[in-house]
Design a protein around this nucleic acid. Structure first.
Lengths: 192, 192
DNA sequence: GTCTATAATACGATAGAC
DNA sequence: GTCTATCGTATTATAGAC
């Protein structure tokens, strides 16, 4: 595989990544992807065998990005409470994108949750990587047995905030919700 | 419009209602609908001008059903706290459907939230009817100014529970989540 | 009014020239 | 390896027979 080849492949993945988020997987056509990536029409099949293969590459790409981000947080933020608050803050910081296109992993999961078994498993990986990292933080905080449950609760609260904020196009609700999550984390840290 | 005509129309709406929930709007084709409703192929266009018109009819139908249900709850359940708990219980009672196909209004809203402005407004109506009814209960409980916010919070918590329960196919998480919501409502009732 | 046959289009995917 | 031309299919939608 040549260097140019690798670059083109990356351009396709980047374009698909954006489009799948903004428009959803099913509403994004090959024409959309090749136009955005500036790649000739049928050329995509040299790099990917099918649309689903592109999605798998997009998910791998997102997992790498998220993994790097979480590792960086683990390394540079010393207390688990602050790490959890960092997670909450990324929701607040992403307000415009969340109001426009929803949660990148939540909306993808919803799109495949209905019936597609294989892709349901793929999109679940995005939840898993956050779930495990969050559980790790709660465990370090002292909640050894409850860590998994608390992690799922935090994810659920975040998902709910994003959905309602998006439906009502209300950035204030998202802001107040994340503040409430910080208070919840603070209480958990206090009584650990 | 004849009586038979009206019946056929209703069969189409019922079939589409189920399919849009189970498979999603975009993944449901006319072929699916006419097969389920047992109506001849192109005949649908006598009743509806487009697929979107069918969706609007489906939403109207759901709004009527929900409206009737909420009115019944308002009439037969005397305390606002019990009414809110009734709302929470319908989530728990719907566990199998929610794990399979997600929230009927949440998943529909997500499907259109990405770009379709008109349909986004339509699906928002499903949130509105619950939101207003829930706010009414919180207001009767004594939370006059906070009623709207509490109503949105309850909706958000419910949406989050459903998304995470579905992704992890975990009925236990949904059950514990609804129990926690009951406790939350109970506290609010106590300190009202 | 009811239904069949079919148009028109957009899509994912392929074949084969260079 | 890269790209163009095109296929087959599924979809929404219509035209027109009865």
């Amino acid at each position: 595989m040549s260097a140019k080849s690798e670059l083109t492949r990356q351009r396709i993945v980047d374009a698909a990544n954006q489009l799948f988020y903004r428009k959803g997987f099913h509403r994004t056509s090959f024409s959309d992807v090749v136009a955005e990536a500036d790649v000739p029409r049928g050329n995509i099949y040299y790099y990917f065998r099918s649309k689903e293969e592109i999605l798998k590459a997009v998910i791998r790409h997102r997992l790498e990005t998220i993994g790097t981000m979480l590792a960086e947080w683990s390394k540079n933020i010393d207390r688990p409470q602050r790490r959890l608050e960092r997670f909450v803050r990324i929701m607040y910081d992403s307000t415009p994108a969340l109001l426009r296109s929803g949660c990148p992993m939540g909306s993808l999961a919803m799109e495949f949750a209905k019936d597609d078994a294989e892709m349901k498993g793929e999109s679940k990986k995005l939840f898993d990587i956050f779930q495990q990292w969050l559980a790790q933080q709660f465990a370090e905080m002292g909640y050894r047995e409850e860590a998994q449950e608390l992690s799922l609760q935090l994810l659920a609260r975040g998902q709910g905030l994003i959905v309602v904020s998006q439906v009502y196009q209300d950035p204030g609700f998202l802001e107040r919700g994340t503040q409430e999550l910080d208070r919840w984390i603070d209480e958990l840290a206090r009584y650990a």
